[in-house]
């Protein structure tokens, strides 16, 4: 590797810590920043700094927010009787894109993953239970990822929440729209059949 001036080498090293950024991408980004104006670089640095300083977790639902409680928890237009439980704050965007769901959210900040040392204690389950104590919530929609960890988390939560007398539902799983049945494996097809509905 060629020797760069120390500040450039440091920038490349820092950029390499970002997801999906390897040595070459880091070099490209570093040289792009070097070619740009000082104002552009300052704006980027300021934006990163602001995100770290101003963004925190909503004390109610654990979503990323710059005001507490977050937009979803404080909005009068959102249905307080429904809570959609997701693994990460980023998952909320995927649900919001549908423009169908009008309830509130709860972010677990992960899923049960014994190999990563994540058990029930590491997830934000306690404050979900506290939210339900108010008695306002009628339905919990478990929108964890459709993989082993997400499914185990959903089943763990359903065992915990059903005794509270709530309606607990799981998002549908199965064949993605635009694909073909010929290519579906047995688990995907089984889940699609399990989640079938009457037309």
């Amino acid at each position: 590797m060629p020797d760069y001036p120390e500040p450039v080498a440091r920038l490349i090293e820092e950029l390499k810590h970002l997801p999906s950024i390897g040595q070459k991408s880091a070099q490209r980004i570093a040289f792009h920043l070097l070619k740009g104006s000082t104002e552009e670089a300052d704006r980027l640095a300021q934006a990163i700094s602001d995100v770290k300083q101003k963004i925190g977790l909503c004390s109610t639902c654990n979503n990323l927010t710059d005001v507490d409680p977050c937009y979803f928890c404080s909005s009068a237009t959102r249905n307080p009787k429904q809570i959609c439980v997701v693994e990460e704050p980023g998952n909320i965007l995927a649900v919001e894109k549908t423009r169908v769901y009008q309830g509130r959210y709860h972010v677990l900040m992960g899923s049960l993953a014994p190999l990563k040392g994540i058990g029930p204690e590491q997830l934000r389950i306690k404050n979900l239970i506290e939210r339900l104590r108010g008695g306002e919530v009628e339905e919990i929609i478990l929108a964890t990822n459709p993989n082993v960890e997400g499914e185990a988390t959903a089943i763990y939560l359903s065992k915990l929440l059903k005794p509270l007398g709530l309606k607990v539902t799981r998002i549908g799983m199965g064949v993605p729209i635009g694909s073909e049945l010929d290519y579906a494996d047995e688990v995907t097809m089984m889940k699609a059949l399990e989640g079938r509905r009457e037309l």
Binding site: P114, V148, E149, E151, I155, E186, V187
Partner: peptide
């Protein structure tokens, strides 16, 4: 896929045991 272990690991206890086997 010859045999799926998806349903087996839906239970957290068995998921943890399977994770132990794999690790």
């Amino acid at each position: 896929l010859l045999e799926s272990a998806f349903a087996l690991q839906s239970d957290y206890e068995l998921q943890t045991v399977c994770a132990y086997f794999t690790e």
